Amino acid sequence: MIDLEQVAQGHAKSVVECNPSAKEAEGLIATAVVYGANELFHHLDEMDFGNAIKALKFGYKVCRKGWNGSGMFLWLKPASKVRAEWCKDPHLKHLAELNGGEINALGTICMLTAQNEILTGWLASQTDMLSEDWMIVP
């Protein structure tokens, strides 16, 4: 399971970066994030797709009870900067080099498949979006 307090502190720091006058309230902001996440997710055995997306944004892994494969789940890979020296993909490395040595990577939803493979850029089906059997992965 994720360290919710660490996620909350990250959210609070982001708020303070955008609004330095909120520095005095940073601890309260982190506490509110933890409280809100606990209230939103910990009492739910099943969720709709909207709450599953919210859970992903809080750093949780989610899955559907109705999925056929054992051990499948989703997680959110947040946006980041990719440095050229980290790249094994020659095309990505070249793009990063052309961009001054690093390039922005957008966030994406990833899946661990039933075959124990990683799928980057998972897309929900209409059935997934309309289902209410989403749950947080322990």
Rank of each mutant, 00 (worst) to 15 (best):
C87N: 12
G107Y: 07
S21Y: 10
E102G: 04
N116Y: 07
G27T: 09
P90N: 07
I53S: 08
W122V: 01
E85L: 10
L98M: 15
L28D: 05
G36I: 10
G121N: 03
D48A: 11
N99C: 07
E24Q: 13
E39W: 01
N19K: 14
K57S: 05
A22N: 05
L28W: 08
G27S: 12
E26Q: 13
L112A: 01
K77E: 15
M47K: 09
S125T: 12
A114M: 04
K77C: 11
N19F: 15
N38R: 05
D45V: 05
A30H: 10
I53T: 07
C87D: 15
L92A: 03
T113I: 02
V33H: 03
W75K: 01
L98Y: 10
M111Q: 00
G59P: 06
Y60H: 05
A124D: 01
V62Y: 00
E24K: 12
S80L: 10
I29R: 03
E97W: 09
T108L: 06
A96T: 08
V62T: 14
T113V: 03
M129I: 10
P78E: 15
L74T: 00
A84L: 07
E46T: 11
E39P: 00
L119F: 13
Q126N: 15
A114F: 04
G50W: 05
W86T: 02
A79Q: 10
Q126H: 13
G71W: 01
V16S: 13
A32V: 14
S21I: 09
L56T: 00
R83L: 02
A79W: 13
I109H: 08
A22W: 03
E97T: 12
G71M: 05
S80C: 12
R83W: 04
A52P: 10
N38D: 11
M47V: 10
E102Q: 14
D45E: 04
D128M: 00
L92V: 04
I53G: 06
W67S: 00
G50I: 11
L76N: 07
A22S: 08
C18M: 06
